[in-house]
Design a protein around this nucleic acid. Structure first.
Lengths: 105, 105
DNA sequence: TTTATATTTCGATATTTCTAGAAATATCGT
DNA sequence: ACGATATTTCTAGAAATATCGAAATATAAA
């Protein structure tokens, strides 16, 4: 995970619809969900949903595998874990003055 | 932190420029950085930078306080912590089959 | 009170993104 | 081959966003 890729993932997750899709897929675990499931769940037109899933897949956050007529979608939780690790290391506290202050000066 | 606000924060952090601003501010801790510091560091026009800082502030991720002619900027690491906690709980593994599987079935 | 500094607001343009209907594609069952 | 199902691609208008120069604002210093 680097800054550029982190920004890409954040941007793709930063849409209410896409975040909802991703959450549903995370909860579905490695069983995944087919696009139609997601559509019935989210009540949005197929083309719109397809667009959002494509963006998540483009960012590497979602994987799709065709099985018969259906496309199974899975959340790449390993990528998400990498993102969270990156954010924790680079964007959370830890550069605070407790660290940089001279102790007992 | 709820889904809607999480999406907002993610969207605002999902710009390379804004993520860079936020990282710099995190590293600056509670000392913060003035806008001019950020500008010299990132080499982008003042108006563009101002726009991005305003968005981060609008999302609550950055706080600004005027001191004299300068505007000091601070990263709201507490908000960031909340976001990371949310992502960990809602978007990372944990709904996986290790959990839902029958143990020793 | 004039001048310098720091930053924002305005305005204009270029680009991206969102949304969703219509058409196309892929796969299956018959 | 045909019809049904599942999903994507195409297309386009509307809305949002990015960029940056110029002008405006706020504060301090001389």
């Amino acid at each position: 995970m680097n800054e550029e890729y982190a920004a890409k993932c954040l941007a793709e997750l930063g849409s209410p619809t896409r975040l909802a899709v991703f959450r549903l897929l995370v909860r579905a675990g490695h069983v995944g969900m087919v696009v139609g499931d997601l559509q019935r769940r989210l009540r949005i037109p197929a083309s719109t949903l397809s667009h959002h899933i494509a963006r998540l897949a483009w960012a590497g956050l979602v994987e799709q595998r065709r099985r018969g007529r259906s496309l199974h979608c899975f959340a790449r939780t390993d990528v998400m874990d990498g993102l969270v690790t990156y954010l924790t290391a680079e964007c959370c506290a830890g550069f605070d003055d407790e660290k940089t202050d001279q102790p007992a000066a």
